[in-house]
Design a protein around this nucleic acid. Structure first.
Length: 265
DNA sequence: AATTCCTCCTGATAGC
DNA sequence: TGCTATCAGGAGGAAT
């Protein structure tokens, strides 16, 4: 589930629940989620430290440790964070656990183990090494940035929107929502987009991020005009009532309204 | 450069 | 009830 707004919720969760608390250690239950770091190195970075600040870029969350390095968290498709105390049941699927004093913990849970836990000393270098594109919610990203990154692209629009090296943070669901709001078919060629259409896409993107965060990414609480409220096989288009359709784009299931998201728009 | 396919892993759901 | 097939909001790598 975690796309940009979901990861932003996790960032806020860390801010609220996990900062400035003395850490006693870390336990790794699924070493496969560790990326570029050994259990021992992770424990060394955590032991005797505390989480101090957070940063998010696209679907990536960084939490700075008082010992220096940043904890790097990626949530794959099923990753989450959960703080709990001595008297609480442990959540299911704990893959890495950070232990505070007095029996409290922050758990990285992830049933499918597609997530990642790592360390970096330099966020910018880390982002550069993975060649990630800009985050649309960071300062400095505006309408003209959006035009810039789409310029010269020749692929199908949905694939480009989901390409993290073009723009960081948009996944399958939010890509569908953007296409829906802009009335564009997922296979629309990026090169064919008019300036006004790109503007519309940009506005839709910012609006859905904002709206989703406003309801804590609980899609059922979104205003009905958003596709995310109706994204299932039987759903009716909130704009025209037509039955929503599905297709495959870039290997992912796309939900769209066949009536007002036609090709070549 | 862009696209397709495969892979990692586990759970939910549908169909028989 | 139990089995199997398919699919799920991600993304890296290989092949094309």
């Amino acid at each position: 589930m975690p796309e940009l707004p979901e990861v932003e919720m996790r960032r806020r969760y860390v801010e609220t629940h996990a900062l400035h608390r003395p850490l006693q250690g870390a336990r790794v239950f699924a070493p496969s989620v560790l990326n570029g770091v050994s259990t021992r190195a992770l424990q060394r970075a955590v032991n005797g430290g505390s989480f101090e600040t957070t940063h998010r870029h696209g679907k990536w969350l960084f939490v700075q440790l008082s010992t220096g390095p940043w904890l790097v968290l990626h949530f794959g498709m099923t990753g989450n964070l959960r703080c709990y105390g001595l008297n609480d049941d442990s959540p299911a699927y704990v893959r890495v656990r950070f232990d505070f004093a007095r029996g409290a913990s922050l758990a990285f849970t992830d049933p499918r183990k597609f997530g990642e836990v790592g360390l970096t000393t330099d966020i910018q270098a880390f982002l550069a090494s993975r060649k990630w594109g800009p985050d649309p919610t960071q300062p400095g990203f505006d309408r003209s940035t959006f035009h810039q990154i789409l310029r010269g692209r020749t692929g199908a629009l949905k694939g480009v929107l989901m390409n993290q090296r073009v723009i960081a943070g948009i996944g399958n669901l939010y890509a569908d929502e953007m296409l829906f709001q802009a009335g564009l078919h997922p296979d629309t060629r990026v090169a064919s987009l008019k300036t006004a259409t790109i503007d519309r896409l940009y506005e839709g993107m910012m609006e859905i991020f904002q709206a989703s965060l406003a309801v804590g990414t609980d899609y059922e609480s979104l205003p009905p005009r958003f596709l995310l409220r109706h994204r299932n096989y039987t759903g009716a288009c909130p704009k025209c009532g037509a039955n929503l359709a599905t297709c495959k784009t870039a290997g992912r299931t796309t939900y769209y309204c066949p009536r007002h998201q036609r090709r070549h728009s």
